[in-house]
């Protein structure tokens, strides 16, 4: 599958309009907001259903608690803020108030990663997936484009239990068209291939596809998996990739060793040990334009190409 002809869109744009659609479909959705509804696009829901939209002001901990109470009373409770705040400021509320009782709270967190850009490191969530994946029973999804984000939000709304969905600020080309069907807990094979596997999520799926195209010109046949769901993790796809391609590179807009790379490594070492390299962040970044930051901090297609070539060199070595 290649990039569609649809105009570029940010994954965050999926939220408000999808919630409106789902409410129009009859789902018992309510939204709790903490003064970032314009940015996360949740505020679109308020325009249509003001009696179902509750703002708590700049008070994220209260947002989670109110959403938990609404969920316990039978509602499908969505809440949204930036991904730095969702687990960062509310971790205890999410842990005790949502994850432990397995409440129907859907946390959609936008402006993830360094691609948020100029605000700098306080606004750049590079730890959120690690925090959310540390909570048993929370479904965690990092969609690659706006189509996948819309479908992930719909799946979250229709599936009981807690969800964390990570969206971004930057406009991206669309990978998927309307024929795509997101499946919770299933990796999506974007490129077949037998020489190596790139496992990516979110923004880095785009770079992974570009890297695979570049590598094919060098005669390297690279499998690309979009691992949009981190919890529950598609262990079968990971084990198959290890066995069938013999090496893996993970690519994520997140700290290495705590998110996708760590989770894939655990599955690989337990089931089918093969060489692995990781593309991702090793520390905090800085202010700058999105593309400048991705370049400086090593989150581009050429970084993936380099790591794939390096990991292939290690195949068969013990």
């Amino acid at each position: 599958m290649t990039t569609t002809s649809a105009p570029p869109a940010a994954t965050r744009e999926a939220l408000g309009r999808t919630l409106v659609k789902l409410r129009n479909d009859g789902l018992d959705i309510v939204v709790v907001d903490a003064d970032l509804g314009n940015s996360t696009t949740a505020r679109k829901f308020r325009d249509e259903f003001p009696d179902r939209f509750f703002t708590v002001g700049i008070a994220e901990q209260n947002m989670i608690g109110v959403a938990a109470g609404l969920a316990a009373a039978g509602k499908i409770a969505f809440c949204s803020t930036f991904s730095v705040f969702m687990p960062g400021r509310c971790f205890d509320q999410i842990r005790v108030g949502v994850a432990q009782p397995q409440l129907n709270v859907k946390m959609v967190a936008s402006h993830a990663g360094i691609s948020v850009g100029e605000d700098g490191i306080s606004a750049q969530a590079i730890e959120d997936l690690a925090l959310m994946c540390s909570l048993p029973g929370v479904n965690v999804i990092g969609p690659a484009d706006v189509v996948e984000a819309e479908q992930a939000i719909e799946v979250a709304a229709r599936t009981p239990g807690p969800f964390y969905i990570r969206t971004g600020r930057s406009k991206l080309p669309q990978i998927y068209d309307e024929s795509y069907r997101f499946e919770l807990g299933k990796a999506h094979v974007l490129r077949p291939g037998g020489d190596a596997t790139i496992i990516a999520n979110g923004l880095l799926v785009h770079a992974a596809v570009e890297a695979a195209d570049t590598l094919s010109q060098d005669g390297i046949d690279c499998r690309v998996l979009n691992m949009a769901t981190l919890r529950p993790l598609d262990e079968g796809a990971i084990v198959a990739a290890a066995r069938e391609t013999g090496c893996i590179v993970t690519a994520e807009e997140h700290l290495i060793g705590t998110g996708l790379s760590a989770m894939v490594s655990q599955v690989v070492t337990a089931n089918a040990p093969v060489p692995m390299n990781a593309v991702g962040l090793t520390g905090y970044a800085e202010s700058g334009k999105s593309n400048e930051l991705l370049e400086k901090y090593g989150l581009t297609a050429s970084d993936i190409v380099r790591e794939v070539k390096a990991v292939i060199e290690r195949k068969g070595q013990s």
Binding site: R52, I64, L70, A72, A73
Partner: peptide, 24 residues
């Protein structure tokens, strides 16, 4: 009614319950 034990969470939860009552 609620999983608790970490202080400062019950009132927010109660507000959610109260808002749901009003809505329904």
């Amino acid at each position: 009614e609620m999983s608790a034990g970490s202080l400062g969470q019950g009132l927010s939860y109660s507000i959610g319950q109260a808002l749901a009552a009003r809505l329904d």
